[in-house]
Write a protein that binds this DNA or RNA. Structure first.
Lengths: 149, 149, 149, 149
DNA sequence: TTTT
DNA sequence: TTTT
């Protein structure tokens, strides 16, 4: 059994973070992935893929990604179902991301991570280490001298 | 923009084939992909992922795969939406498979491909070549002498 | 930075296992992945991809896979280089597998795992749990009642 | 048989383009993909993965990517071997890219594509269409009105 | 050095 | 032979 997905796309909205009752962070966002071909009438088409990530990744995603951010994720497709408020069964598909890569150049990042997303109040200590999620990742220090553009 | 998925799982039902008005074959099936971990109560869990494939792949899939068949696919996640019969917008996610690999050993295959799936009547010629979809693929001729099991 | 590979192919030889000085198991094998097209002269072509896996996966692979076994892996491409015995630098590419799936039907498996591969003598306890690597793996029994379709 | 790789990394050098005797463009480049973990001594580590692409993709890659460019590719691992000049057999592994995505922001692109790479002289017409490889690629402008959420 |  |  293999279930592996890789996506690179842009967030359609700011990500949302919440916490389970046991205090685990969960962050949801949607990636718009443009299709490599146009529709019959020449319009750009995209797939809007719901993604979810957990724990430290969730907090990093909430802190550093915004609507429009270019991001890459690796994960697996997860399906679930529940009873909708109208009594009909609702089926849901989302990608559970093991890893989230921020692919914007540094110049596009907010100077300060958005400080409003933190583990809930009752936790006097941050639950996950607040390390830089870009360490070893998409560190991008493009100086004009380095690149012939 | 990257949107790539690889799945290996088993068909939850026989695949279904249909034809667009212009005669293009489209085959739908669902893959059950077991999760690599058990739920809290020790139960096996799986994701049930809707897949669709087109043209020659559609006919091969309909002819050679059955409920329970082990298959591997490569494709991309596609999202769409339409108005449900109750007027509510319904969102759909499926994997459009570029390639479908049959991973059963030959001994598990039906002797004859299921002959009931063919291009519709008005086509006097088969629309897609009827070549063996296992050519270069998962040809499996395991003789007892070759394998130390 | 994303680096993800998924392969399904057959082992070209029995896998080899060894142990680092600190007693960590490492298993190497080569997967033959047939190309989906034939060469000009109609011959089947394949890529022979070196793979490596560590710890419990290493022991499971050594115990349950053999020359000819169909296997699926997920991992990342790793490159390295070292000085060859002729003083020339040798470059090496291999896939480090996070997960290895055994895709043979149950009937093709040896009744007993190959007992000859164990953690080295000085370890009185098995270093990794000897659980069935196929649990939750390639065999499922889908009944209509279980599926939400 | 499945053989699929997705990479996001940076070009270690300017790509090189050449043409086969029959005039088909082939472009080679190496992607540096940083590993998500540091080595024992805290150093950043990377894999240097050789890639090759053909035809129109080859010309686009040669025209638009440079040393340091962030790029994403999808492809398959290809192995081959040949006799080295010292008579020893040399084994080679590279990723054949079906698709190459340019992931730099627009501001980092050269105004003019590098005009020096063209199909060879004897071809009075460009062999591959000179369309913008970024169409439908890395830049989108998502307005709330466009999204079905 | 290659599997089926 | 390596990118940031």
């Amino acid at each position: 059994m293999i279930n592996r997905t890789v996506l690179v796309g842009r967030l359609t909205k700011d990500p949302t973070i919440s916490y389970t009752q046991s205090g685990i962070a969960v962050c949801r966002f949607t990636l718009a992935c443009n299709r490599p071909f146009k529709s019959g009438d020449g319009e750009q088409q995209a797939d809007f893929i719901n993604c979810v990530t957990w724990r430290k990744q969730a907090e990093n995603t909430a802190n550093f990604l915004r609507k429009g951010s270019l991001a890459g994720i690796e994960g697996r497709i997860q399906t679930s179902s529940f009873d909708g408020q109208d009594g009909k069964r609702v089926f849901m598909t989302e990608v559970v991301a093991d890893s989230v890569q921020f692919l914007e150049p540094k110049s596009n990042r907010s100077e300060q991570p958005n400080g409003s997303y933190q583990a809930p109040q009752q936790q006097s200590q941050p639950q996950y280490s607040q390390q830089d999620p870009f360490d070893g990742g998409a560190q991008i220090e493009v100086s004009d001298d380095d690149l012939p553009f």
